[in-house]
């Protein structure tokens, strides 16, 4: 217990003194996570709409498949992206390996199933009678879609928050395709992994608490936006 308390005090101290290295690492975690969730949302929310509003063969199977990938291990995504982005891999020419962009690519892949699946569920939960009413009053397909997104916004926001949480908390992708390079791709989770392996448990705990603090702030902001 003493160790946990020391970690907590250390976290407060690091935040209070604006420790430059820690702030930089925290900022990097935040901006990589946010970039991933923004890109992921821009791709997945419309795509989920396309899947939801269209009837096609194999739709059920597709949704099951998407849900299966909720539990894909981050190291598997990391390995896949590593093989793709490695110099000899198919996308090696981009020179993205060991860069923040590589982590974003991995995180977007990681959260895509969650975003798609949860947004589809949110769309499904919209009361059908509202849509029927809108149609009977002459709403176009586009207007109905906007109505669905509006009605489903709590569910959509929950999906986005969930996706952000998975992105900022993952360590496997950041470690494998980011390389945990100090000043470039070292994020909170990889720093925790390094510091605890170096035996600096206190600093590792402090970083963990800072990560939770960041998530808290982001969630408060997102909830604010949603409730307005």
């Amino acid at each position: 217990m003493g160790e946990l308390w020391d970690g907590f005090l250390k976290a407060l101290e690091l935040i209070y003194t604006f420790d430059p290295e820690v702030m930089q690492i925290a900022g990097r975690s935040l901006s990589i996570g946010l970039t991933s969730i923004v890109i992921g949302s821009v791709i997945c929310i419309p795509l989920a709409g396309l899947i939801h509003f269209n009837q096609f063969w194999g739709k059920r199977f597709l949704v099951s498949l998407i849900q299966t990938f909720y539990s894909i291990p981050t190291v598997v995504v990391g390995l896949f992206v590593f093989v793709m982005l490695s110099n000899v891999g198919p996308l090696g020419g981009l020179g993205l390996l060991f860069s923040p962009a590589a982590i974003v690519v991995g995180q977007v892949l990681l959260i895509t199933p969650i975003l798609l699946g949860l947004v589809i569920s949110a769309f499904r939960g919209v009361d059908q009678t509202i849509l029927d009413t809108a149609r009977s009053m002459g709403a176009s397909g586009w207007q109905v879609a906007v109505l669905v997104i509006k009605e489903a916004r709590f569910g959509v926001m929950a999906a986005v928050i969930m996706g952000f949480g998975r992105a900022i908390s993952e360590v496997g992708i950041s470690l494998m395709v980011g390389g945990n390079i100090r000043g470039v791709t070292r994020v909170i989770t990889t720093a925790i992994s390094l510091e605890s392996s170096k035996g600096d448990i206190e600093l590792a705990l402090a970083l963990g608490m800072i990560l939770i603090f960041i998530s808290l702030v982001v969630n408060i902001i997102m909830n604010r936006i949603q409730q307005k």
Partner: peptide
């Protein structure tokens, strides 16, 4: 946020 994060690599360095 997206624009801000585009500055990410340069900010980091």
């Amino acid at each position: 946020i997206l624009l801000a994060s585009m500055f990410l690599p340069s900010v980091g360095c």
